[in-house]
Design a protein around this nucleic acid. Sequence first.
RNA 1: GGAGAGUUGGCAGAGUGGUCGAAUGCGGCAGUCUUGAAAACUGUUGACGGGUUAAACCGUCCGGGGGUUCGAAUCCCUCACUCUCCGCCA
Length: 438
Amino acid sequence: MLDQKLVRNELEFVAERQRIRNVEIDQTRLSELETQRKAAQKRSEDLQATRNSRSKAIGQAKGKGEDVQPLLDEVAQLGGQLKEAETELNSVQEELSSIMLSMPNLAHESVPPGKDEEDNIEVRKVGEPRAYDFDVKDHIDLGERNAALDFETASKITGSRFAIMHGEMAQLHRALVQFMLDTHTLEHGYTEVNVPHIVNRDSLKGTGQLPKFEEDLFKLVAGEDVSDKAKQEANKDYYLIPTAEVPVTNIVRDSISSSDELPIKLTCHSVCFRSEAGSYGRDTRGLIRQHQFEKVEMVQIVTPDQSWQALEDMTSHAENILKKLDLPYRVVILCGGDIGFSAAKTYDIEVWLPGQDAYREISSVSNCTDFQARRMQARFRSEASGKPELVHTLNGSGLAVGRTLIAVLENYQQADGSVAVPDVLVPYMRGKQTILTS
RNA sequence: GGAGAGUUGGCAGAGUGGUCGAAUGCGGCAGUCUUGAAAACUGUUGACGGGUUAAACCGUCCGGGGGUUCGAAUCCCUCACUCUCCGCCA
């Protein structure tokens, strides 16, 4: 959520900045609502002040044993007026807050304008795609051996966009997870956490998935009645996490850290669940786009002055995994039209996939500045002012495990259809140097 | 699943209808003392919104939502969570 004061006082500036994302702000409606809000709030607060002072007078009069009936008559019609004023205020504030909750973060000055991924700008390219003296296969073909990747059986068990990894494939997948976690904890200074894969509405609201992107999520229906209104008000609705960013970042929701606790650097392996609504027909084959996939996530909670450096650091941490795996990749900065809702700036890392003859996203690293922090009320006590201030939150994949698996398979494939194990993974594979040999 | 007890400021913890945003302690901050530090002592210290050059001032907040009342941390309803005991269970 943006700072209401900023939207109120610098509406033109905010609208201009949102145009970088191709988002149009209804300035007229917003300033209208703001005027109404001010008037309604004033009226309601004045009435409350009257009520408070009158009630206090009644208390005092009673204490002295005086007759309070005249005072009671005086406030007789106050209740109705107050209720009316509050109803009006509530309705204005509800509309305002729904607009505010649906408004994306302000893009950083360095974010280029643009419509979609075509307009993203390459920052650097690292490693050269290998030359192969045989016809390259994609990961689906490579995984056919020993049914190492089995999509048919998965669709029988569940449905489309699920996969079974079998034998060496499952082992390699697990090796990648261990390797990534070890690298982040031992070399990059992160602490490993393990978190719930089911979260409530408040958490999803905190990181920005709700209220706007409900259709991307899997919502759980418990055995009992979930339409219970009281339970919904208690935010008891449960959802499967679309990314570990949600539970991990929400660790600091509604809390005030002391400044020496920052930065908080956490890494987390989790399963992620996405409904992929709206992506029918895209990447329907293979592991690229699944309803369920695994990811190692990095999250940092930092003071505002550190967040832009942290974004660069986190990007390099994700890149380091690819470097160690010796996979060719490039880093792009997302343009305004492609950047996520909560992010002020995002770097995508795209790995080279010989089977697709293309670079494909394998990590996305974002600085969400104070956008999520404001929704979550995640604060730290500033040493300078002694007052609570909003933290900055960042998250990034380090990396998407399934896609990394694809990249290893396709980049390390050999003429006979087997796949060499990258050196750094050999210890995690119990010394095995080649898989899918027959 | 059953029974009971709880949820209060950064933390701990009082407070059962009327100057209670809330005692007290810890922590934090400032000062006294000290070469310096510690200890001791003194003072100060909630968040959010509105308002002001700055203050003053006004409003809201005692787990969430609703209700009773002129007035609610305090009474009622409801939901969530925590703890203890019983049952079940990986």
